[in-house]
Design a binder for these strands. Structure first.
Lengths: 145, 145
DNA sequence: TTGGTTGCAAATCGTTTGCATCCCG
DNA sequence: CGGGATGCAAACGATTTGCAACCAA
């Protein structure tokens, strides 16, 4: 897959998202740091790149991306913070290191069969789910002795 | 299983939790409304029962229960709120109606095999996970036409 | 040009904390 | 009696909002 800035912006455009500096910036930070980022981390990354964005704008842009289905919003365990990650085709989940926050994608989603079973049993209309698995990555396990 | 107030208090006692009015109150509300409750909902329920408890106390009591492994803390999707539920033996998850907030337990936990696979593949030490499934219950589906 | 987008500052919401008082063991 | 538990009020951190200025189409 080609990965130029133009491609990314074109991708946003295709999803009905007007190109602006903050939107491109947030989107490119999310793509570059493929994984899970908080609004704070996005802000810090932008600052390190010499860009300035307002926090409110970051939140508004993220909300827009979530609405358009480009980004998934979830929670980081043990904090009060929301975290955001780019939605992948095929719907992946995250394995998250509780120490260094590194993430590994778990795909494909192992839950579709389970959902069908549950829908049949409970007569719920299932619209989504949330799955995260927490642990410690090999590196952090070493450091932690 | 017997369910008298004394039994509930004895249960807390066994877990090293000193019996106080707020603790018994919160615990009994959680047991009565078997499912998922926010701090706010616990507070409202208490008020409806003619009891008064301070919000700080509710949070402190809930934190204590979580520490002792009696209660699980998670997030309600689409809100910024934490929600709390009694931990069942065998580790259950929730199917949550997005409209009326009714919950259905999903048990046993369908993830233990998956966790083993993932641990083997990634060399992570897995310490926990978070799974919730969202949808609309039969009643709400009718109401929503 | 012009309606959507941004930055700023202030408000909001859920949650946490310091401290004096209270109550269980 | 004494230490932990509570209530109160104030602090806190993350997120949201109103509004005026701005900018992409």
């Amino acid at each position: 897959m080609a990965c130029s800035l133009e491609d990314h912006r074109e991708y946003l455009h295709q999803h009905g998202i007007k190109s602006t500096r903050p939107r491109n910036l947030v989107w490119e930070i999310l793509l570059t740091h493929d994984g899970i980022l908080s609004a704070e981390e996005i802000y810090q990354t932008a600052v390190q790149q010499g860009e300035t964005v307002n926090f409110s704008t970051i939140y508004r842009v993220l909300e827009l991306f979530v609405e358009k289905g480009l980004v998934e919003k979830s929670f980081f365990p043990g904090t009060q913070k929301n975290v955001f990650s780019v939605c992948h085709v095929g719907h992946t989940h995250h394995l998250i290191c509780l120490r260094c926050h590194k993430t590994v994608d778990i795909s494909p989603c192992p839950l579709s069969d389970l959902e069908k079973q549950i829908a049949a049993k409970t007569d719920f209309q299932i619209v989504g789910h949330h799955l995260e698995i927490y642990g410690y990555c090999p590196e952090c396990r070493k450091i932690m002795k």
